[in-house]
């Protein structure tokens, strides 16, 4: 427990093992990535469990907690795996392939910071779950938290990218490309992995049969409906 907390502390301060320094990649890069993966898994699970506690802990509720705890790390890693090949090719085309180990380190840094921020907010979410029974509010709250977490992640990622950008200004563009790509895939991934919170009145499931669908289409349709456009079929 203590080593994990120490690691998180180092990560947040960008000190020790996680010093975002210039210069050649140190030998510890593999060690760094391994720790980052552990942090993503642990923090994601903590948040997922709190997120899934909306239906209560007793009765069937604990199952939703387990399911959500598994899903949050899954959301991060699967979206990451889907995006990495194209990001590598884009880096190589831009002539930045020799920096890719450091770039990868920054990408993991983004995810671990986002996971840490989520885990830090987990008690608040649990408290909200306890005190509210309004389902749309909880959905909105979680969406907001994920947004804040990814903002924090991008802030940290920018720090990791500083030495890279100093070496080549094109890295700044690629960082934005990554943000776009990862968000685009991540939103759809979150949609597919529903339910995270578990709508009251619905049975606990790992996947929803009707969950397949496209997040962007559905959300834009909601917006269009809200403005009085009726879909023409």
């Amino acid at each position: 427990m203590t080593p994990l907390l120490l690691t998180i502390d180092q990560m947040l301060r960008a000190e020790g093992l996680f010093r975002a320094a210039a210069g050649p990649v140190s030998m510890s890069i593999r060690q760094r990535v391994r720790t980052q993966l552990w942090v993503i898994a642990a923090c994601g699970m903590v948040y997922g469990a709190c997120m899934g506690s909306f239906g209560g802990v007793f009765g069937d509720g604990w199952r939703q907690m387990l399911v959500s705890a598994a899903k949050v790390p899954l959301l991060f890693t699967v979206a990451f795996l889907l995006c990495v090949p194209s990001f590598y090719v884009l880096n190589a085309v831009a002539g930045l392939h020799q920096d890719f180990p450091r770039t990868l380190d920054a990408l993991f840094g983004f995810q671990s910071i986002a996971a840490i921020v989520l885990a830090a907010a987990a008690p608040i979410t649990a408290f909200m779950n306890l005190t509210t029974s309004h389902y749309p509010f909880i959905l909105l709250w979680n969406g907001l938290l994920f947004f804040v977490a990814s903002l924090a992640g991008h802030f940290m990622m920018r720090r990791y990218y500083e030495p890279l950008v100093r070496r080549h200004p094109r890295h700044a563009t690629l960082r934005r490309v990554w943000m776009l790509l990862y968000t685009f895939v991540g939103i759809q991934m979150a949609w597919v992995l529903r339910p995270f919170v578990g709508s009251p009145g619905m049975p606990v499931q790992f996947f929803r049969a009707e969950a397949w669908g496209n997040a962007y289409i559905e959300v834009l349709q909601l917006v269009l409906n809200a403005f009085g456009f009726t879909p023409n079929s």
Partner: peptide, 26 residues
């Protein structure tokens, strides 16, 4: 060949959306 390499690197993303999306136009 370079174009195709870039294209194929998007393959996993296309596969993921193909599995989860029904909307043809998207």
């Amino acid at each position: 060949t370079l174009s195709i390499i870039v294209l194929v690197s998007f393959g996993p993303i296309v596969a993921f959306f193909a599995v989860s999306t029904e909307n043809y136009y998207f």
